[in-house]
Design a binder for these strands. Structure first.
Lengths: 253, 253
DNA sequence: CGTTAAATTGAAGATCGTCAACCAAGGTGG
DNA sequence: CCACCTTGGTTGACGATCTTCAATTTAACG
């Protein structure tokens, strides 16, 4: 299927809005720095769900800043076994790694319909050279990605299936909340149980049973792409969820 | 137990030797850059096996460059369940992440007796400001750490126990070989089966059985802290091991 | 409506964990 | 030098968790 041509960023919507929300939960970002980020965005594009955005092994010349929807990084075993290594929410740089790695060793794909911005590597180089504080903030983002990966390793390696699914939900709740995409009672999560299985290292059949247990225990209901949290402390306790590894400062400024 | 006082780096042994071996498998490093690295090293220390080097939550003021021995980063669940998220070989910066993250969300511990160098964060800042190419190489190292973590997520999430243990051995063989610590026939790996279990998300009992299978299949023998490779292509095939994710260029220069 | 992907449930089986016992090696103190 | 202790390795028996297979239901969509 053909990739829709990216269109110029139209006025009226700020492509770096979610990114700023996230960055400001880590450090102050000046108005000038925000403008530098805005200027770095070259084009905005859209893609339907389940589309490959960057193939494994490719060497893209620009980075992808996710604006709307969910994007995953995946690796495959043999061909049919898929593992989601990272899941990205709006405001995340999906492939900033690719800037220095040159070549990506994993696939990047849309999980839902997505809207995204392209930031050319040349623009990143300019930021590196003239905006050291901003550059550090962007790199910090990749280090936090790695911290999230470590928590995922712990989850898949040592948590029970039930706690694993619960932890997945806890993490997404907090991360979506940072960019204003969660309510007190829950959040929209338009993905399939197969996707959850690929992220947690389980089968979709078992994910289904674990979700039923979470529902039966009155902790969380996931249905029709919506997660409703019934008992947030209980869910956190079951999952052994501690948001420390997300490196969020208490309040925006 | 008291931590031995770090001693000044004595002449005659080059604390950045292994690091240079690794960096030069990724990009050229000039003699001047090598000297800048040497100058950044403040002190060399030693520690016995199974010692905590940086406690989770701590904010160290210097980074640790591993010179000899093996170091792990670990996270714990409840208290008794341990998961190794990363294993480091000589030449690795163990906690470069801590430079920007400020606080580490995981524990760093020695797996064997280790010798290491301390590089103060202030020295890293100087490198960032005056040696952009070298700085990029160091950051590239943290990005490759993340790539290794992703492969670990795939391993624990989707590989069978046997393939998982085999893959662990393949990775260490290649990584130790980069810094000259492997022979054609095998390598020294003075760790316990419990350690392997904590790295692969298994129990030590099951690791024992998987190691026996690898031996029975004439692929690899692990005994007394030594790994002997009997059939490298066969081991790679069983593990579905592809060293692409280590981002090594074919030959040093 | 008919078609397809996803969700759901049951039954059966495999993998891996738990429990328990025993062995081997190395260090310690008498 | 040798009992003793501790840690790790090894093996067997058993059981739990999770997967596989299969069938059915539900929902979305042209």
């Amino acid at each position: 299927m053909a990739t829709p041509a990216p269109r110029r960023v139209e006025e009226g919507d700020d492509p770096v809005g979610p990114l700023l929300l996230k960055l400001r939960r880590r450090d102050a970002v000046s108005a000038r720095e925000a403008q530098v980020l805005r200027d770095a965005v070259e084009a905005v594009g859209e893609l339907p769900a389940d589309h490959v955005m960057v193939e494994a092994g490719a060497a893209p010349g620009a980075c992808t800043l996710l604006l709307e929807g969910l994007v995953v990084r995946t690796k495959a075993l043999n061909g049919d076994l898929r593992q989601i290594t990272d899941i990205h929410v709006p405001g995340d740089f999906v492939d900033l790694h690719g800037y220095l790695l040159k070549r990506l060793e994993h696939r990047i794909a849309s999980l839902t319909p997505v809207r995204f911005a392209r930031v050319p590597h040349a623009a990143l180089t300019r930021i590196t050279e003239s905006e050291p504080h901003l550059a550090r903030l962007l790199w910090l983002g990749t280090l936090i990605d790695a911290a999230v990966q470590r928590e995922r390793i712990l989850s898949i390696g040592r948590r029970t299936a039930l706690a694993r699914v619960a932890h997945f939900m806890c993490e997404l709740f907090v991360r979506l909340d940072v960019v204003g995409l969660a309510e007190q009672e829950g959040f929209s999560l338009p993905i399939t149980q197969i996707d959850i299985a690929d992220a947690t290292g389980l089968t979709s059949v078992h994910v289904n049973r674990m979700l039923r247990q979470l529902r039966d225990r009155s902790l969380l209901t996931f249905r029709g792409g919506n997660a409703v949290i019934h008992d947030w402390p209980g869910l956190q306790a079951l999952a052994d969820f501690d948001p420390d590894y997300l490196f969020l400062t208490p309040e925006p400024r």
